[in-house]
Amino acid sequence: MFYPNSPQTSPQLTQIPYGQQYAMMQRQIQQPYHPFATTEPQARLYPYHYQGPIQQEQGGFITQQSTAASPQYVQMRVTPVDQSIMSGYPNQTANGSSSSSFNYNIHPQQQQQQQQQQQQLRHHAMPVGSVPLQDDRYRKQLIVNYLAPDVTSTDLHELFSRFGELDGARIIYDKQTNMSKGYGFVYFCHAEDAKEAVERMSGYEFHGKWLKVGYSTNPLNIVPSNSSPYVHAGSRGAAG
Results as ranks from 00 to 15, higher is better:
155 D>W: 01
156 L>D: 04
93 T>L: 08
172 I>A: 00
133 L>V: 04
119 Q>E: 02
66 S>G: 09
101 S>P: 13
41 P>M: 13
102 F>I: 08
18 Y>W: 11
187 Y>T: 00
67 T>Q: 12
141 Q>Y: 00
103 N>M: 09
76 M>A: 03
166 L>K: 01
65 Q>G: 08
12 Q>S: 10
27 R>Q: 14
123 H>P: 09
200 R>V: 08
41 P>N: 02
58 Q>P: 08
62 I>G: 07
232 H>Q: 11
28 Q>V: 11
2 F>D: 04
121 L>D: 03
60 G>H: 06
193 D>P: 10
184 G>D: 02
188 F>T: 01
69 A>V: 14
141 Q>T: 00
43 A>H: 09
117 Q>P: 09
137 R>Q: 06
118 Q>P: 11
24 M>Y: 04
129 G>W: 12
52 G>Q: 03
114 Q>H: 07
141 Q>D: 00
208 G>S: 07
235 S>Y: 07
75 Q>E: 09
94 A>M: 08
161 S>H: 11
186 V>H: 04
175 K>T: 03
14 T>R: 06
97 S>N: 10
129 G>K: 05
29 I>N: 11
56 Q>V: 13
137 R>V: 03
99 S>Q: 13
69 A>W: 14
199 E>R: 08
95 N>D: 10
30 Q>E: 09
132 P>C: 08
164 G>I: 00
89 Y>V: 07
229 P>G: 10
28 Q>L: 08
238 A>Q: 04
16 I>R: 11
147 L>M: 07
132 P>D: 05
234 G>R: 10
27 R>T: 11
119 Q>Y: 14
135 D>K: 01
38 T>P: 12
176 Q>G: 09
155 D>Q: 15
136 D>T: 03
129 G>R: 05
7 P>V: 11
101 S>R: 08
158 E>L: 13
149 P>N: 14
237 G>M: 10
86 M>G: 04
151 V>P: 07
173 Y>R: 10
167 D>S: 02
179 M>H: 06
121 L>W: 08
104 Y>Q: 04
17 P>V: 14
65 Q>D: 11
155 D>R: 02
198 V>C: 06
116 Q>Y: 14
19 G>T: 10
18 Y>R: 07
66 S>H: 09
166 L>A: 03
169 A>I: 01
85 I>G: 09
210 W>E: 01
85 I>S: 08
154 T>E: 08
131 V>N: 10
93 T>E: 13
198 V>F: 10
67 T>A: 07
122 R>T: 08
58 Q>F: 15
160 F>L: 01
148 A>V: 07
105 N>T: 08
66 S>Q: 09
179 M>R: 13
42 Q>K: 04
145 N>T: 01
25 M>T: 03
206 F>G: 01
57 E>D: 09
177 T>A: 03
78 V>S: 04
76 M>C: 10
186 V>P: 02
225 S>E: 01
184 G>Q: 10
116 Q>S: 10
132 P>R: 12
103 N>P: 13
136 D>V: 05
141 Q>H: 01
27 R>G: 14
194 A>S: 01
210 W>G: 01
32 P>G: 11
204 Y>I: 06
27 R>I: 15
13 L>Y: 14
125 A>H: 05
19 G>A: 10
203 G>C: 04
184 G>A: 00
222 I>S: 02
90 P>Y: 12
123 H>V: 09
228 S>I: 09
222 I>K: 04
190 H>I: 04
75 Q>P: 07
222 I>E: 01
220 L>R: 14
183 Y>D: 00
217 T>F: 02
185 F>N: 00
41 P>R: 09
61 F>A: 03
70 S>H: 14
6 S>A: 09
166 L>P: 08
214 G>Y: 05
105 N>W: 15
200 R>L: 12
82 D>T: 13
11 P>A: 04
86 M>K: 06
99 S>I: 13
153 S>K: 03
22 Y>H: 12
92 Q>N: 08
239 A>C: 01
198 V>T: 05
185 F>Q: 00
30 Q>S: 14
156 L>V: 08
158 E>V: 09
130 S>N: 11
117 Q>T: 07
219 P>R: 00
131 V>M: 14
143 I>G: 00
150 D>H: 05
15 Q>L: 15
205 E>V: 06
145 N>A: 02
208 G>D: 03
29 I>G: 06
217 T>I: 05
159 L>M: 14
205 E>I: 04
88 G>P: 09
109 Q>K: 11
193 D>S: 07
166 L>C: 03
52 G>F: 14
224 P>V: 04
46 Y>W: 09
160 F>A: 02
56 Q>G: 13
168 G>I: 09
48 Y>H: 09
151 V>T: 05
183 Y>P: 04
30 Q>I: 09
113 Q>M: 14
29 I>H: 05
54 I>K: 01
171 I>R: 01
63 T>D: 04
187 Y>G: 00
17 P>F: 14
219 P>N: 00
21 Q>G: 07
119 Q>D: 03
189 C>H: 15
67 T>K: 02
102 F>L: 07
194 A>E: 01
170 R>M: 00
160 F>E: 01
122 R>Q: 10
171 I>L: 03
212 K>G: 01
33 Y>T: 10
24 M>H: 05
37 A>H: 13
140 K>V: 00
180 S>R: 02
99 S>D: 09
105 N>H: 08
8 Q>S: 07
62 I>E: 01
130 S>H: 07
145 N>H: 04
233 A>H: 12
109 Q>F: 12
83 Q>C: 13
58 Q>L: 15
230 Y>L: 06
130 S>W: 14
182 G>L: 08
229 P>T: 08
109 Q>S: 10
111 Q>Y: 13
132 P>M: 04
131 V>Q: 08
203 G>N: 02
157 H>G: 07
198 V>H: 03
207 H>A: 07
208 G>T: 04
136 D>K: 01
75 Q>G: 06
68 A>N: 11
180 S>F: 07
92 Q>F: 15
185 F>P: 02
139 R>S: 05
101 S>K: 06
37 A>P: 14
193 D>F: 01
70 S>Y: 15
223 V>L: 10
43 A>M: 09
120 Q>H: 11
46 Y>E: 03
16 I>S: 12
90 P>H: 12
36 F>L: 05
118 Q>Y: 09
189 C>K: 09
180 S>N: 03
207 H>V: 01
47 P>R: 05
22 Y>M: 12
39 T>L: 13
234 G>E: 09
182 G>F: 03
122 R>S: 09
65 Q>F: 15
81 V>F: 14
178 N>E: 10
139 R>W: 03
102 F>N: 03
97 S>C: 13
240 G>W: 14
167 D>T: 01
92 Q>M: 15
23 A>F: 15
13 L>Q: 09
97 S>Q: 13
118 Q>N: 09
51 Q>M: 12
239 A>W: 02
86 M>I: 14
125 A>W: 14
185 F>G: 00
9 T>V: 09
184 G>S: 01
237 G>P: 04
2 F>T: 04
234 G>H: 12
157 H>E: 03
206 F>T: 01
25 M>D: 10
194 A>H: 02
53 P>Y: 14
78 V>A: 10
52 G>P: 09
104 Y>H: 11
158 E>N: 11
204 Y>K: 04
25 M>K: 01
182 G>S: 07
196 E>T: 12
236 R>E: 01
44 R>G: 09
239 A>Q: 04
27 R>K: 03
14 T>E: 14
123 H>A: 13
218 N>L: 00
24 M>C: 04
213 V>Q: 01
177 T>D: 07
149 P>E: 02
115 Q>R: 09
186 V>I: 06
16 I>C: 09
72 Q>P: 07
176 Q>P: 09
199 E>H: 05
122 R>I: 14
121 L>C: 11
52 G>L: 14
171 I>W: 02
136 D>Q: 05
172 I>V: 01
84 S>T: 12
28 Q>I: 09
180 S>E: 01
186 V>N: 01
73 Y>K: 02
74 V>I: 12
194 A>P: 05
181 K>E: 00
187 Y>C: 01
115 Q>C: 05
83 Q>F: 14
64 Q>E: 07
105 N>Q: 10
8 Q>K: 08
121 L>Y: 13
52 G>T: 08
50 Y>L: 09
65 Q>C: 12
135 D>A: 04
157 H>A: 12
126 M>S: 04
214 G>T: 04
123 H>E: 03
79 T>G: 07
164 G>T: 01
2 F>E: 03
11 P>Q: 12
12 Q>N: 04
31 Q>R: 06
28 Q>R: 10
74 V>Y: 14
161 S>I: 11
21 Q>A: 11
127 P>G: 06
167 D>L: 02
139 R>L: 10
221 N>A: 05
90 P>G: 11
209 K>F: 01
152 T>C: 06
